[in-house]
């Protein structure tokens, strides 16, 4: 039977707001499949977002959904999670929302290792506002605020998360959608802060400025440029040029999770 996305989508909300060819819908479907695969009760899930194209996603989903202010989704989510530690708190956030204005909350959520899953919808651009460059836009690429080619530098989001203390860090892409289901499931099942940097395609404000003739070309670029981590490690420097590792890139299982540490303290104080 074809997967019934209708089970999770709020009636009458489709067609969604994202542009023709925007890959967010592909990743959105992967997220729904991942939630379904875990058999979670929608009552127990909070889906939090900030501001931007990706941040409109919660409105479509029949969970407890919270569309907050630009960059602050993780901080709102931290409040939700600390108040109800046994619930699932999931954050969707664009590359600008998560690592530019939201950068401080990003690194601290990683450091704190609170049991929240952050899905970064990384399309290398601020799409909602018309195509300005973001902290993940690669050098040389074009954007409305880098009309002569980006002379700024980009975060390696997984490395940033790893360095800040996140205990599950992965990268997926909209093209490798089936593999993404598993990454999201593993991230959500992980006890601790989990980040999945999900490479996405914005044909409208990024693709057109960067010589991608069609949305499909952007997906095919992902197919070529992203290599499973183990294989990537074996590439020679020039083979690796223009390519990036994907899959689970960093995982630590020993670090205490913040809610467990906090409520462990609460228990200790009772005795």
């Amino acid at each position: 039977m074809a997967f019934d996305y209708g089970k999770y989508i709020r009636p009458g909300k489709l067609p969604h707001i994202w542009c023709p060819g925007c890959s967010y819908g592909i990743v959105f479907k992967s997220l729904l499949r991942a939630v379904d695969a875990q058999g979670l009760d929608p009552d127990d899930i909070a889906l939090v977002s900030g501001i931007g194209c990706a941040s409109r996603l919660p409105g479509y989903v029949d969970f407890n959904t919270l569309h907050t202010t630009h960059g602050r989704a993780l901080a709102f989510a931290t409040g939700l999670k600390m108040a109800k530690p046994d619930k699932h708190v999931l954050v969707v956030s664009g590359d600008g929302d998560a690592t530019a204005i939201g950068g401080n909350h990003f690194i601290h959520a990683c450091r704190r290792n609170i049991d929240i899953t952050l899905l970064v919808f990384n399309n290398f651009i601020y799409g909602m506002t018309g195509g300005q460059y973001s902290p993940s836009t690669q050098p040389g690429r074009f954007a409305s605020t880098m009309p002569y080619g980006n002379v700024d530098f980009a975060f390696d989001i997984p490395a940033l998360a790893t360095g800040a203390g996140a205990t599950f860090v992965a990268r997926g892409t909209a093209y490798h959608a089936a593999a993404l289901d598993k990454l999201i499931v593993d991230a959500m099942r992980h006890r601790g802060f989990s980040v999945v940097d999900i490479v996405n395609a914005c044909p409208t404000t990024y693709g057109r400025r960067n010589k991608f003739k069609s949305p499909t070309d952007m997906l095919l670029w992902m197919k070529d440029a992203f290599v499973p981590a183990a294989a990537y490690a074996k590439l020679s420097p020039d083979e690796a040029a223009g390519k990036f590792p994907m899959g689970v890139l960093h995982r630590v299982d020993g670090k205490p999770e913040f809610c467990e540490a906090y409520y462990g303290m609460v228990e200790r104080l009772k005795s």
Partner: peptide
């Protein structure tokens, strides 16, 4: 932000 999350 956390306070609003907690209240919600």
């Amino acid at each position: 932000a956390a306070v609003i999350g907690g209240s919600l």
